[in-house]
Amino acid sequence: MIDVQREVEGVMTLRISGKFNFSCYKEFQDAVSGPVPTRYVIDLSRADYIDSSALGMLLLLREKVGEDAARVVIKSGSGQPSEVLRLANFQRLFTVN
């Protein structure tokens, strides 16, 4: 499930809980389809599982902001999601904290 906090001072926050996989595609797509904010914050601190499609969606979001690592911030939380982000070297492509 994705809880979207629309632009607050140029920042759009997507808080994802539970599983972040292809079942979130529609919600994710709808959330990011509008005008591009200064920065996206993807909050995964409440997610307990992510798969490769979630990583793919994040990569496409990065393309959308001109591959600027500062413009997509991922709050990786702990457990499987943070391990998968580290495994995929996402700290080199995004601002992961």
Partner: peptide, 20 residues
């Protein structure tokens, strides 16, 4: 393992793009 993961993520990104 790193290269495998990188490829997997790129395949996923391309697939999501195809779905779009």
């Amino acid at each position: 393992v790193g290269r495998f993961v990188e490829d997997l993520v790129h395949v996923s990104a391309s697939s999501v793009k195809l779905v779009q």
